[in-house]
Nucleic acid binder design. Structure first.
Lengths: 171, 171
DNA sequence: AGTTTATGTCAGCCTTGTTGACTTTCCAAG
DNA sequence: CTTGGAAAGTCAACAAGGCTGACATAAACT
């Protein structure tokens, strides 16, 4: 680790040091600015519906894992049950999410999108996917795998578990 | 565009379609989970000091561009002046930031970190750089340039301008 | 002299996070 | 069968950090 790295294209040609503080600073700012773009398109749709990002996150992960429990969603989203509950309550009231009492364990609520919920989910994820698709296309396939590799390394281990694991159906 | 892309390693081997909805969904979740990791370490330090992410962002960009004006900071951060002002006021009151009246244009305030401000800035950016450095090292140099390429493509044009532009001194 | 610009400030609102306390339901182990 | 504890929901209170709108001031520009 330490020779022959000109790939990033920054810094003086000193070689040896692959990761200067300036390169790291650029990476940090890239995350900051890109995340703004990442959320910009769904945010527009959400405000039209009177929702916020918290609603989007709940909708996304319910859509990805239909029948997931509230507890599972809590561990994915990393918020308190009170915060999540407030969001879920409005989504259920508005008829976008259905919370079915579990059969095996009736304490659990299994969450599903209603037809209306899936309409909104598609609008949100299409907007977000369009930007992601354009970014991926413009950057090229090699860049995409690098993008994912770095992001995965940046996650906390528990989050990486959620990221790596595929969709597991519950009830 | 459309052949020979196995690099990402997802999807059925259908080729042709490089970007399946599932691959895009993984990219979206990667952003979500990674951003949490990205902010986790500074957040711990910030709460110790009674600050939040908004303070971190202000401190970061004042550190990157000492002497920047309030207006410039506003366009970088993309918030209202009321929001920024609330943050800047506490930082000035706490003696971490100094707001010098401009000499050329006395309406402007040029922002600088005090010695105390730089101490906090170093603690914050070191924590964040450590995670970024580890992620970059584990992912490798090729991945890093891909990471940056995709993120840059994801930014809104105005944000990309801020990202691309180096440090410009004011005052 | 009048207008625009840069900044600050007050008031009020919303979302979304937090903690703490309490209840209900219900599985499971003693 | 009873009881402990887990899962879920609820209420209250609070804080950070967004937002809008209105207004003030000083400086610069025309």
């Amino acid at each position: 680790m330490g020779e022959r790295h000109a790939s990033a294209g920054f810094g003086r040609g000193e070689t040896l040091l692959f990761l200067t503080d300036d390169q790291l600073r650029r990476g940090i700012e890239a995350m900051f600015f890109a995340y703004r773009g990442f959320t910009a398109d769904p945010d527009l749709i959400l405000t039209d519906h009177g929702y916020g990002r918290a609603h989007h996150r709940a909708i996304h992960f319910i859509s990805r894992t239909p029948g997931t429990t509230v507890n599972n969603l809590l561990s994915i989203l990393g918020v308190t049950k009170q915060s999540l509950n407030r969001v879920l309550r409005t989504l259920v009231e508005d008829g976008l999410v259905e919370a079915r009492v579990g059969t095996r364990d009736k304490r659990e609520r299994h969450l599903f999108l209603t037809d209306g919920g899936e309409v909104l989910e598609r609008a949100l994820s299409e907007a977000q996917r369009n930007r992601m698709r354009t970014a991926f296309r413009n950057a090229g396939p090699e860049a995409v795998s690098g993008f994912r590799a770095v992001l995965e390394e940046m996650m906390d281990p528990e989050m990486r578990r959620h990221y790596v694991n595929g969709v597991d159906q519950n009830q």
